[in-house]
Every structure is written in C-alpha cells, then in structure tokens.
Design a protein around this nucleic acid. Structure first.
Lengths: 226, 226
DNA sequence: AAGTGGTCTAGACCACGCA
DNA sequence: GCGTGGTCTAGACCACTTC
C-alpha cells in the first residue's frame, strides 16, 4: 500500500500544484487518514515532517496550513576537519602553531559569559589538505570545563574536543572577512583576501567550554541540498 | 510519567556523562522500553530524533551506537530577504537595477543543466535595509518554467519566486569572495571587499527554474543554534 | 536464520487555543 | 466547550543486515 513517505509526497504534490495554495488550511489528520485509508498516526508522521521542513504550519484547533512565506530550512553537516578533508580524497595533517595560557579578548570572554580576567588556553592550529593550508583555527578553551589536556601537537584540538565534549550545545555563525596580516601569513594568501569564517561557541550544561574561529582558505564552499 | 522528550534527554545525558561512550552499542529499543516502562514506539521516537541530529547511528540488526565522530547537523533558516530585514526591525526596500533577456554564462547554464544557447531572463536587484545597500541579487530565470512574469520593479524576484515556485528542490552554497568592480559599485564598498556569497539553484520536477547569487554587504552573518 | 530497527494499526487520552 | 494536533499504547508485520 502506502507509507508515510508516500503521503508526504502526495501532500507536497498538492501544495506544489496549488490544489492547496499558500495560506490554505488543509484537511484534518482524521479526514486525510480516511481519504488515504490509513491510520491517523501515519498521516500525522507525514505532516509532522512537512511542518518541520517549513512547508506546513500546524496549530492545535486552528488546523494545518500551507506556509505563506515558506522559510526554507537547510540542514548543514558540520564535520570534523579531518573528516572533511578525507571526504575529498585528500590527505589531512595539521600543525600546532601556538599554545599559551592567557586572558581572552573581551569579545571572546563576553560571548562565553566568562569574567574577562579568567585565564584560558589559547591554541592556534593550521589544518592542511594535501600539505596545503586549508583552515586556520583560533581557539580559546576553558581548562576548567574539560578533562586533563592532551598533547595538542599530537591530536588536534578540533578533533579532541568533539570526542571529549560530545554533543554539548552551542551556536555557530558564518561570515566573510578580510584576512588579517597574521591570517594571511598562516594561510599563504595576500592580506585582505576574502576568507570564509566559521565562528562557534560551545557550552556544557555547567560552564562555557570553548570559542573557536575557523578561517578557511579561499575556494572553500559550504554546500547543502534543500 | 514521561514522554519521548524525557527519554531523549536521559539518553543524551548518559552519552554526555560517558555511561555510553562514543562507539558503544546502547541497549535495544525493547530493552529501553522495559527500563523506562513505556511502549517501544516511544523509545523509538526518542532514538530516531537523536539519530537524525547525528548523535546516534542506527542499523538494523547491528543495533544503535553512539556516533564516534559526531557530524553536527545545524539547521539554517533561509528567509525571504524582506522578512530577514523586517525581523531586524528595519525597513525593507529594493531597486531593480537591470532586466534583460540573454544567454546565461556557461557556468550558470551548466549548473542548471540547460543548453548554453537557451535564452533566460537576467535580473539584477539591490535589496536595501533602512535605505542602505544590503544584498545584491544576480538572478537568471528560466521563463518557460514559470507563469507569466510580473513587473519585477513592483515585486522583487526573490519574493515572487518563493510564492510561485513554492517548495521546489534545489541546492545552496555559501562562500566568501572579493567584490567585483560592479558589485563594489552597487553595494557602495571598496573593490575586493570580502563579501558573503549565497548561491542557489532551483529546479521544479520538470525543468530548471532559476540560479541566483546573493552578495551580502559587509557585516552580514548567517547564524544558528546547534 | 535470527535479531534489530522501521513502520503501521486502532484506539485512547491529553493539551492547547479558538469561539 | 470543543475541535484540532500531539502523544502514548500494545501489538503486529516487515526489511534489512549481520551472523
């Protein structure tokens, strides 16, 4: 017969063909279950997925409507850098450029919600792909929030943290910025070159863990399917 | 008692606290249902959501494992530009800079899978936020794939298409590029300024619809919560 | 072959939010 | 109040994949 994916497709087809135009209230789960001759839970599953991807808006009592101005939701995969390089069939390596304990810049401390005077571990790591500069990582790490630190010349902070502090919450932002003189030097590009920047904050339930800024070498593209 | 969200939290807590470390196989749905004293479907829902967010890997017969190198999945909202500006409490406006029928550049035709000789509609639109340049939109539109065209000086192509070709599939990519002379002029920035670029292709089931490149004014950040 | 997740069912109760 | 979606249940069968 049909599964919830078929029902999702059928509903989507009716939306695309304007049988159910934007803003319109579609039939209730019960009515659709009757039409498709299946259990309500099956319809529910299909409609839930469509709502999650922004196609439908659902409210109790009000019913289910086709979204007026659909906010497209794109899902991005954010892999560990080593994986990302390997996925392209290239060889990954990295170099620890600097490691020091210091007080972070005001902006970093503020973002993490730490007292500015707090000492943090500052790491700079260059990630290479087939021996060429790929990403420059600038990281501030709260040493109180994580287990005893390893030798960051042997395992990249990027990868170690993922394993240690798995699945913590946080936020992430993407932007474009001109390469600072230091970044230009590390990445072997001209100063002020347009760089793709990933900036990320991570908290454990108890304390801020880390702030990291990744400056990607020119040509980097973050891509996904809608 | 407890719902699937509580079970999700509990499982996540066990993962974070390393009761179930990365790579470990966790108990079966049936076993967990017994432990939590609920139906298997409830456990299933909780584990499905965790798998969807990359925390768990599930395979029939093999069972459910904690992901070794969790690929973080971030969900981005991609609103219509007018909405995006309004959400910041600013006033949206736009200016149609150019409109012409022409043959697209080879790169665009190739990406859309069209013969290079095909004529397409070329639109350049400047989107403004509180009267200041915000995004420069460069769009190629397949006129055969959409209903009769409106006056793009009255409604922006960005918004018209969302309503007309709702929920089509496509892909999207983000990058950083230096402003071309034309872009610099339109956005009132110095040439070679680092710009955040969004590039997007859209297809309907039958035909390619549109290719669009958005060049965002400096300071733009694409942000989300993990 | 057998174990595990994936899905479906028929029914029930609950929570929310319009009227 | 009462209609709608949100969830849970107990059971069943199926699909995949490893053993």
């Amino acid at each position: 017969m049909q599964g919830w994916e078929d029902i999702r497709s059928e509903v989507l087809a009716r939306i695309r063909s304007r049988v159910w135009p934007p803003g319109e209230t579609i039939p209730t789960e019960e009515a659709l279950a009757k039409e498709f001759d299946c259990a309500r839970a099956t319809v529910s599953r299909a409609l839930r997925e469509l709502a999650q991807s922004g196609v439908l808006e659902r409210r109790r009592k009000a019913g289910t409507r086709v979204a007026m101005l659909p906010v497209r939701k794109a899902t991005l995969d954010i892999p560990v850098i080593r994986q990302e390089v390997n996925a392209k069939g290239q060889t990954y390596s990295f170099r620890l450029l600097a490691q020091a304990t210091a007080t972070p810049p005001m902006a970093v401390a503020a973002r993490l919600g730490l007292a500015q005077a707090a000492k943090m571990l500052h790491l700079q790591t260059l990630h290479l792909s087939d021996g060429r500069a790929h990403v420059l990582e600038d990281r501030w790490l709260n040493p109180d929030a994580v287990p005893p630190l390893p030798d960051f010349a042997a395992i990249s902070a990027n990868e170690w943290l993922v394993a240690q502090v798995a699945f913590a919450s946080g936020d992430i932002a993407f932007s474009a910025e001109p390469a600072s003189p230091a970044e230009a030097l590390a990445l072997s590009v001209a100063p002020s070159t347009a760089l793709f920047i990933t900036e990320r904050c991570t908290w454990s339930p108890e304390a801020p863990i880390t702030w990291v800024r990744l400056a990607h070498a020119p040509g980097y593209r973050l891509q996904t399917v809608l």
